[in-house]
Write a protein that binds this DNA or RNA. Structure first.
Length: 160
DNA sequence: GCCAACGTTGGC
DNA sequence: GCCAACGTTGGC
């Protein structure tokens, strides 16, 4: 039984962890996610080999900057247990960890950023509920359909 | 740096 | 269980 490959988008602030950082280290535990919806996607949805759109948020030109793959099943995020970590969660225990993560492996950088501005031009095709173009746009991990994945990556070739 | 959106917390 | 207060995200 091989499950069909799924697709995801994951946000990171480049000041904290950029696509270049991922390229340098190769594989990175995606720690620091403290949102239940995002956690559930990692814990219940992700399988090794799934495709990831790597998105830079909170930066001059927010947008998709590279591709990565899911490199592990979900496991507890160690930073939740570390009192010295910014991500420490005093209510979490090793017996009942609250926060899970997956490892993310570098695949490639895009030839050019697919800017949020560009993505917004195609909001209609991506669908009403697409989190990047929906009002709010705060969710940092969410699924992308095969059609959305294809449509988004087709924008890479175009010059803005 | 500002602020809208929105998730979480805690008093009641 | 409601909801005001508060904290965080992220575009601009």
């Amino acid at each position: 039984m091989t499950a069909r490959k799924r697709y995801w988008l994951m946000k990171s602030e480049p000041d904290a962890f950029s696509i270049d950082d991922l390229q340098r280290v190769g594989t990175e535990p995606w720690n620091g996610v403290r949102n239940y919806q995002a956690r559930n996607f990692m814990r219940d949805g992700m399988k090794v080999g799934d495709g990831i759109l790597f998105y830079h948020s909170n930066t001059k030109v927010p947008g998709i900057v590279g591709l990565a793959t899911v490199a592990s099943e979900a496991y507890p995020d160690d930073t939740q247990f570390d009192p010295k970590s910014d991500y420490h969660d005093p209510k979490s225990t090793r017996e009942e960890p609250r926060w899970m993560l997956v490892d993310v492996a570098f695949e490639r950088k895009l030839a050019q950023v697919i800017a949020l501005d560009e993505i917004k031009l195609h909001a209609d095709e991506l669908g009403e509920g697409f989190p990047l173009t929906a009002k709010g746009n705060r969710l940092s991990v969410f699924p992308v359909t095969a059609a959305q994945w294809k449509r988004l990556l087709s924008l890479e070739k175009k010059s803005s």
